[in-house]
Write a protein that binds this DNA or RNA. Sequence first.
DNA 1: TGAACATATGAAAATATGTTCATATGTTAC
DNA 2: GTAACATATGAACATATTTTCATATGTTCA
Lengths: 103, 103
Amino acid sequence: MEEKNTANEMPDLEVLFELADLFKVFGDSTRIRIMFTISDNEMSVLNIAESLNMEQSTISHQLRVLRQNKLVRVRRDGKQIYYSLDDDHVKKIIEMGLDHVLE
Amino acid sequence: MEEKNTANEMPDLEVLFELADLFKVFGDSTRIRIMFTISDNEMSVLNIAESLNMEQSTISHQLRVLRQNKLVRVRRDGKQIYYSLDDDHVKKIIEMGLDHVLE
DNA sequence: TGAACATATGAAAATATGTTCATATGTTAC
DNA sequence: GTAACATATGAACATATTTTCATATGTTCA
């Protein structure tokens, strides 16, 4: 009990692949920007695209990646589809990264 | 004071790029495995390569990426060069990711 | 039903990334 | 100095990823 057991035990290979895949999702500036954009309020696809000054298609493709990795929540309202960050977990991961970048 | 201000404010574009670049480093299974391998004790390049059953060159290339991103510490002792994780920050980022993957 | 709008998706092109091979560089011991 | 060993690096290749364009799908409203 003299040492905190943090990331010490090597998880199964499969878990490590999943872990890398998860971080891969955070490793793209477009997706990071999308995540920040919808971290306060949910937003429609077009609004995100306008907000970031990028093509609707680009945003849609990247939202799919975020969806597949369960990082966003989706809600349809009429023609619009609203996206928001899935949970605080996601924010925490980003914060940890920010801490490292800003230090 | 009714809402916790977490990742709400959108940082500068440049910071977002750095952030994505940081996560990109975590987004490769070889690098993740290296980080786990050296999270307990420092290890020489060859030892890491043997431990992961990969080429010395592959490991060396990836260690360079980790070095450039200040995620590892380096110590030379004779012919060997020993690598270890830079700080607890790195472990925390990995842990956050693991939490998400394992949940 | 059809027009208008919002979103998703497939394919192609451009770019980035990871691994391997061959070899260079750096260190030690003789 | 030179042989032996450890690590780093450049170039080439294979693979993955991101964006764009064109178009399909889904929804509303008249």
